[in-house]
């Protein structure tokens, strides 16, 4: 099998496996996996920018939240039906990403990290400031009766699982495809050597801009879907913690690999889920994981597998 065939088989295998799990998993894990697939979609979006383009954002929660609030506010106050609201959320995140890209891409490295962090913090505080509509920290619940697309009740566990599965599958296949065509190659080239890439005649800014916008749009789609599927919109999802999570998932799973975001989200979700049963200080796990990954396994799980056993891994 060629590398391209192997990677196609891997992606379809993962998607097929997750579909089969919909009918096998016990209730508790069934619900967890629905969540994990949405969060993994968020991580896939993050990976486009961090893993492939080499731009480390500390503010992706603003895109996740833009999707979530774009959707949620439209439904809550505009009476917009679920499906158009979902798209409004994605559009909101995309526009925000374009604006942030134009400003933040004037900086590089550490400054880029801090600028994105500050913009996200501005976003978080803005949500708190307009607490009258956003309900601030408390957030608001989307009623079950409005969470319907084409007559399907998204609060039903199986429907919800399959909706999350569709979202994840589309994001996975789309980004895998993107990395297979020339555009993805240029993103990697920018990550590896920006100056050389510019001197080969590529418009580096345009590619980075596109990467931020695509990344933000996917994160926004995940945020909108999360709010819609689980019926809750809250400021927590705009906080620094939700900017750190996708970084953590992608680092753990393997930055710059297509399946890394899913692996990372899966492992970290269960690690935190398990430890939060033992202690309220469950974020300790996240801290320890960040330090250990930085020290010993920068490539993450999929990255190590790729290095040791499967160089074809996309």
């Amino acid at each position: 099998m060629s590398a391209a065939q192997k990677s196609l088989a891997l992606h379809l295998g993962l998607i097929g496996g997750l579909f089969a799990l919909a009918f096998i998993l016990p209730t508790y894990h069934h619900g967890n996996f629905a969540r994990i697939m949405v969060l993994a979609t968020y991580a896939i979006g993050y990976n486009v920018l961090f893993g492939y383009t080499g731009l480390l954002s500390l503010g992706h929660a603003m895109f996740f939240a833009a999707g979530m609030y774009g959707m949620g506010l439209a439904m809550q106050y505009g009476g917009v039906p679920a499906l158009p609201a979902l798209f409004l959320g994605i559009i909101a995140a995309t526009i925000l990403a374009a604006v942030v890209a134009v400003l933040a891409l004037r900086t590089i490295g550490v400054a880029f990290m801090i600028v994105t962090l500050m913009f996200a913090q501005t976003g978080f505080l803005t949500i708190l400031y307009f607490g009258e509509w956003t309900r601030g920290d408390e957030g608001f619940v989307l009623q079950q009766k409005v969470r319907q697309i084409a007559g399907l009740d998204l609060s039903d566990p199986m429907t919800r699982y399959l909706a999350a599965w569709v979202l994840f599958s589309v994001a996975l296949l789309a980004t895998a495809r993107m990395m297979h065509v020339a555009f993805g190659g240029v993103l990697v080239a920018i990550r590896e050597n920006e100056e050389r890439t510019r001197m080969l005649g590529y418009n580096v800014f345009a590619h980075k801009f596109a990467a931020v916008v695509i990344s933000g749009a996917i994160a926004g789609a995940a945020g909108a879907a999360y709010g819609l599927l689980f019926g809750y919109v809250g400021a927590t999802f705009a906080s620094v913690q939700y900017s750190i999570f996708p970084l953590l998932w992608v680092l753990l799973g393997g930055a710059g690999t297509t399946i890394g975001p899913f692996i990372g989200a899966l492992f970290m979700f269960y690690l935190i889920d398990y430890s939060s049963g033992l202690t309220s200080a469950y974020m300790l796990i996240a801290g320890v994981a960040l330090v250990l990954l930085t020290l010993f396994a920068r490539a993450g799980i999929a990255g190590e597998i790729k290095r040791r056993w499967a160089p074809w891994l996309p």
Binding site: V188, A189, E192, N193, E195, R196, M199
Partner: peptide, 13 residues
């Protein structure tokens, strides 16, 4: 086309 004074290639590719 331009080649750099200090070698500039994609070392990991």
């Amino acid at each position: 086309a331009y080649t750099f004074q200090i070698t500039s290639i994609y070392a990991r590719l």
